[in-house]
């Protein structure tokens, strides 16, 4: 255990001095992830009810999930809404971030705050608001309604990610491109966009996740054939608890973790 006596930083503090800190950090990390991962073993249980630890192992709840028309329809709705939200929120948020950043006007700064309010306001308020507006416009239980509401939630994320990447970008490059004969659109597409593309991809993945993981708005405004996976899961938990939920949760945790890992990987590639 030689490394224990080595300094942990530029100061004289060694790794053994820091041992308590490493332990504390490990415990906190465990506490954060255990609730998420406890569903994983439960999903492979053979029992009729959620139990931990499982006595017998089986894949029956995965079969149950993939064999159920109801669950598959909900999954397809969630994927559809997630992808559409991504396709709408990413360009919208990117354009808004770019415009507000380039303008630098006082009004632009105020607009930025207005546009990121969906991130600050309690989601339940947005859900109630959307429910009433959709009630009058006939958008409840529709894909469009869900996409619109999820886009409002995802756009601020996109704007924050894109604005952050524009801050470290030299906008003079666009001036040069324009002086060399490119109009503003060409200058953005050929010079700026390729250089912020990792942030755009990150923003796109995050907006997909925002929609895919979203429960509260979905409970209010989705239903019938267009109910989302999260809404069905919530209903299932309330009405009858069986390990199918655990199987679905495991799949969702897997997808979310994978996407976040991709985001992290993109981030680290961008830095190097």
């Amino acid at each position: 255990m030689n490394w224990l006596s080595k300094p942990a930083s530029d100061t004289q503090i060694t790794h053994s001095n820091r041992l308590w800190l490493y332990l504390l950090a490990a415990v906190i990390m465990l506490l954060l992830v255990i609730p998420t991962f406890i569903v994983v073993p439960m999903s492979f249980s053979d029992a009729q009810y959620l139990e931990f630890p499982p006595e017998k192992w089986s894949l029956r709840w995965y079969q149950e999930y993939f064999g159920s028309v109801k669950w598959m329809r909900a999954t397809s709705t969630s994927l559809k809404v997630g992808l559409l939200t991504m396709l709408v929120a990413t360009p919208l948020g990117t354009m808004a971030a770019y415009a507000l950043f380039v303008s630098g006007h006082r009004i632009a700064r105020a607009l930025f705050v207005v546009l990121i309010t969906p991130m600050i306001v309690p989601v339940i308020l947005i859900a109630i608001g959307a429910f009433y507006v959709y009630g009058r416009t006939g958008l409840n239980n529709s894909i469009i309604g869900l996409v619109l509401a999820h886009t409002a939630m995802a756009t601020p994320l996109v704007m924050i990610v894109i604005t952050a990447s524009l801050r470290s970008y030299d906008l003079n490059q666009e001036l040069v491109a324009r002086s060399l004969g490119a109009n503003r659109f060409t200058a953005f597409m050929s010079i700026t966009l390729p250089q912020i593309k990792f942030s755009v991809i990150t923003a796109a993945l995050l907006s997909f996740l925002t929609s895919f993981d979203e429960v509260i708005i979905s409970i209010f405004v989705s239903g019938g054939v267009n109910a989302t996976l999260t809404k069905h899961m919530f209903a299932a938990l309330r009405d009858y608890i069986d390990p199918t939920i655990a199987a679905i949760s495991t799949i969702m945790v897997f997808i979310s973790t994978l996407l976040l890992l991709i985001v992290q990987w993109i981030g680290s590639r961008q830095k190097s």
């Binding site: 003079n172 490059q173 040069v176 324009r178 060399l180 010079i191 250089q195």
Partner: peptide, 20 residues
């Protein structure tokens, strides 16, 4: 006339080369 139709070559202080 917008800049891209002026047919003017311009060199900036920061060079602003395209790093990609």
């Amino acid at each position: 006339t917008p800049p891209h139709r002026r047919d003017v070559g311009m060199v900036f202080q920061s060079y602003a080369l395209f790093p990609h």
